[in-house]
Amino acid sequence: MRISLRIALAASAALLTLGVAQAQEKTLRIGTEGAYPPFNNLTSDGQLVGFDIDIAKALCDEMKVKCTFVAQDWDGIIPALQAGKFDAIVASMSITPERKEKVDFSNKYYNTPSALAVPKDSTLKGVTKEDLAGKSIGVATTTTHFNYASKTYTDSTVKGYPSSPEEQADLANGRLDAIEDDIVVLQQWLDSPDGACCKILGQPSPQPVEIFGPGAGIAVRKGETDLVNKLNSAIDAIRANGKYKEINDKYFKFDVFGAES
């Protein structure tokens, strides 16, 4: 008796959630990481803030849909999108060929270069493979920076971290000789009291587009061409009407959009 009752309960719960999901079709659920300031960050009271969040809100206003945000660890963000936990990823995700096999992307909404940071008293002179031979470099895994570092700095120890704050902590601790990350993320950290230990060493050059991609785009499930088109026109619209510049200037001193494509 009890077992069949449970099954019945579970079935009705499943039906109920299905019904709710259908009722909420008009809202767009957006997944983001929340550990990548200034692009996306969870404040101490649990609010998601940052450039990605503001851009996403502006795009939602432009597309006239209601948006909700979901914070999700970076490692599992693509599987979570595929599992339907949210409908789009606005989390500074670089558009790369490997990711394109799993998800569809909008056009880029910004593009900033990769850079390396080192302790202020570091003796490192440059950012080439030879300069960093034998050193340990911290990078967040599942990022374009990680792919670049593990392909380029083959004579160094490349250590993978779950997200940027951990790699930054270990550079400050002295466990690492250098870290590689987005220059804007590094700069934000260096300007904070926690980053007082360290400085930017330089930007790797060239930064091949087949590794770094054309920039950060919005990822959606494969085949949702409709949503991609809507997002693309919304991006163009906020670029044109000044909304993008307004958000950009709130966070950065220069235009992070990069070259017009």
Partner: peptide
């Protein structure tokens, strides 16, 4: 694996990161 030791799980995470294959 989360403190950068490449144990069995750490290598699995890395393989997943490179292939996106479950």
């Amino acid at each position: 694996a989360i403190i950068t030791v490449y144990d069995l799980m750490g290598n699995a995470k890395l393989a997943f990161a490179n292939s996106f294959d479950i």
